[in-house]
Write a protein that binds this DNA or RNA. Structure first.
Lengths: 336, 336
DNA sequence: GTGAAAGCGCTAACAC
DNA sequence: GTGTTAGCGCTTTCAC
C-alpha cells in the first residue's frame, strides 16, 4: 500500500554529495554554491522529491504549524476569524490546524493536548463556554509554548490577547436603544464564565447607569450553553416577554442566542416588532425576520492580529514577559 | 524557550528496563506482563509523560490523522459534514486537520500537498469549484494514499465517493413546483464544472420532461463562482426576473446562491413572493425573508459515511480495487 | 516476557 | 563550500 518517497539520501547518493549539502541546498542556505543548489534542486524536481516536515520537525523542533481552538467553525464569527488567521499564517509560511471544542471542556482538553502533541509551534485559543479550569493550558504555557488568546480570553494566563472592546460595544448598543427612547431593556447574556459575557453585561449596566435607569437583575438572563440549548433560550425569552415583565427592547449578546430568540419570538402571538440589537457576524443577518439591529465584530482582523502576535512570540529569540491585550472596535448597525 | 518533555528513554532509565519494553507497555502490547505495564504506566503518569506522535509516525508511517479539504468551513453544509467526520474519526482514534480551498484551484493544490506532506493517513475531499485539472490528486492516489470524495465528487479518480442523490433531489424539488401549479421554473446553478451542478440540472430537466414542459436554456443560469461573486448572482436574478422572462418559480442549486438571490429579489420593487426552492443546510433558513422552501442534504451523515469508508481503506491490509459511490437522500421542505 | 540494535528522514554542530 | 557525525523520540525486527 505504502509507496517509497524520495529522500535527501537518494538525492545525495545520486549526486555523490552529502545529505547535509542536500539539506542545506534545499533550504537555500548561503553556505552552498549556486551551482550545487541548482544541481540539487533540479534533481529533486526530477525525481519528485517531497520534503518531509514530520522528520524535519522531529529534528528541528519546529513545525511551522499553528493550532487553532474555537468553539465551532459553523459560527460565522469564528469562521471569519479563521480566515483572518489563515491569511497571515500562510503569508508567513505557517500552516494551521483547526479544532473545535463545541463548548465542551472535555473536548477542549483533548484537542489542546492533541495539538501540543502534534508539535504545533503555537496555539490560538478562544475558550470553550464550559471551561472554568485552565490547568491544561497553564501547563503548556509554563512549558514555554507560545499561546495567544482571542475573543473569549482569560485573565489567569499572562500572554497576548485580542478581543473586541465588548464593554464599549455593549455600552453603545444599549445607549443607542436608550437614545431611541427605550427604557426597559432586557438583556440575554452568553455563558456566565466567559470573559465576553461579563464585559458585555458591564457595558449594558454602565449605559443604564449613565442614563439613570435602574438595573433590574430580573430582566437579565444568561444562557449557560450559549444558545446551543434551544429550550434554555426559549425559556429566557418567554420569561422576559411575559406580561409581568414586557421590556420595550432586547439586547442579545450572541449570534446563536439571537437567532434562537427570533425563533422564540416568532412563536409568541402578537409580540412581534420589539426592537432588538444582537451581537452577530452572520452574513444573512440582513435577511432575517423579524429584522434585527446588530453589533458586528471585526472578526477577520481579530484573526490577523492574533496570528501576528503569535508568530512574533514563536519567532522571538528571547522570552517575552511584557504582554498586552488588544481591543478591537465593533460596529453597530441600526436597522429600522 | 523550549521545554524538555519526558521521553520513553527517561522512563526506561528510571525503571531500569529497555525502551522497547516501555514502548510496548505504553501501547498495551500482549507481550508485556501486567506488572511491568502497571509500573510503566504509573511512572509515565507521575512524570507527566506525553506520547510524541510525530516521532511515532516517522517510524511507523502512520499518523492517525485524516486531512479534510472543503471549500469553506463557513458554509453550513460543510461545517455539518465536518462534525460528522469528526464524530467517527475521534471514535476510531483518528484526528482531523481541516483546510479550506475557498473554491480556489491554487489553494486546493497547496493545501492537499501540505496535507500529504504532513503524512495524513488519508484524505477526505470535496472539490473546489474552480478545479478542472486533477493531477495533484491523481498523483497522491497513484502513490497509494487513501482518498474518499464527498459532495463534490469527480469521475476521473476511482475510489469511494459519497454524495447526495442530487439528480433525485432536484427532480423532486422541480416536480414539487410543477405539482403546485408552476410551469415556468427558472434555475440558478452552481459552477458548471462541479459534479453536483450537472446532476441537479439533469434532475431539473428530467422533471420538466416528465411533465411535458419544454426545457428553456434561457432561464437556466450558472454562477461560476458559486455565489461568492454577488454581482454574478444579481445579474442572473435580474436577468431572469426581467419582464421579458418572468418565471413563476425559482429553483436554486446552492445555499450561498439562494441567500444572495433573496437579497437581489428584495432589491426588485414589486417582485416579491415568487416561490423558491433552494438547496440549503443553513440553520436559519426558517428565519429568512422572503420565506423559502429548501432541499436539505444529510450533511452530518455524509461526513460519517465518508470517514467510515476512508478508515476502512486506511486500515485495509490489502489494496482495494472495488469501489462504490453512496448516494444519500435529501429532504425537501415545502414552506408556504 | 524483555532487551539490543537499527533506523524512519531530517538538521545541525563541528570539522576541514 | 562541503562532509562527518550524531541524534530528534519512537517502533520494530530479531534475539534470547
Amino acid at each position: 500500500m505504502m509507496f517509497k518517497a524520495a529522500t535527501i539520501k537518494d538525492i545525495a547518493k545520486a549526486l555523490s554529495i552529502s545529505t547535509s549539502t542536500v539539506s542545506r541546498a534545499l533550504s537555500d542556505s548561503y553556505e552552498i554554491s549556486p551551482k550545487t543548489k541548482k544541481k540539487v534542486l533540479d534533481y529533486a524536481r526530477q525525481i519528485n522529491y517531497q520534503h518531509n516536515p514530520i522528520a524535519a520537525s522531529l529534528r528541528s523542533r519546529k513545525s511551522y504549524t499553528i493550532g487553532i481552538m474555537v468553539a465551532d467553525v459553523a459560527n460565522s464569527f469564528f469562521s471569519q476569524t479563521i480566515n483572518g488567521i489563515e491569511s497571515v499564517a500562510y503569508e508567513k509560511g505557517y500552516n494551521v490546524i483547526i479544532t473545535q471544542s463545541h463548548d465542551s471542556y472535555d473536548r477542549e482538553v483533548i484537542n489542546i493536548e492533541h495539538l501540543a502533541n502534534r508539535s504545533v509551534d503555537g496555539l490560538l485559543i478562544s475558550m470553550s463556554a464550559q471551561t472554568i479550569d485552565y490547568a491544561h493550558i497553564s501547563k503548556l504555557h509554563d512549558q514555554g509554548l507560545p499561546i495567544v488568546f482571542f475573543d473569549r480570553i482569560i485573565d489567569q494566563i499572562d500572554t497576548y490577547k485580542v478581543t473586541t472592546d465588548n464593554f464599549k460595544a455593549a455600552f453603545e448598543a444599549t445607549e443607542l436603544l436608550i437614545n431611541k427612547g427605550y427604557q426597559k431593556i432586557a438583556h440575554l447574556g452568553n455563558a456566565p464564565q466567559l470573559s465576553i459575557t461579563a464585559e458585555r453585561v458591564n457595558g449594558y449596566k454602565a449605559a443604564l447607569a449613565k442614563h439613570h435607569i435602574n438595573f433590574d437583575a430580573d430582566i437579565v438572563k444568561y444562557c449557560h450553553e450559549g444558545g446551543r440549548n434551544i429550550t434554555e433560550v426559549e425559556e429566557a425569552i418567554f420569561y422576559v416577554m411575559s406580561d409581568a415583565i414586557k421590556p420595550d427592547a432586547l439586547f442579545i449578546a450572541s449570534d446563536l442566542i439571537s437567532t434562537t430568540s427570533l425563533r422564540a419570538l416568532n412563536k409568541i402571538p402578537g409580540v412581534q416588532q420589539i426592537p432588538i440589537i444582537g451581537f452577530s457576524n452572520s452574513d444573512v443577518i440582513d435577511l432575517l425576520s423579524p429584522r434585527i439591529s446588530y453589533v458586528r465584530q471585526r472578526a477577520f482582523e481579530m484573526g490577523q492580529v492574533a496570528t501576528g502576535m503569535l508568530i512574533q512570540l514563536i519567532e522571538s529569540k528571547y522570552p517575552v514577559y511584557e504582554f498586552d491585550t488588544t481591543l478591537l472596535e465593533a460596529e453597530i448597525h441600526w436597522i429600522t
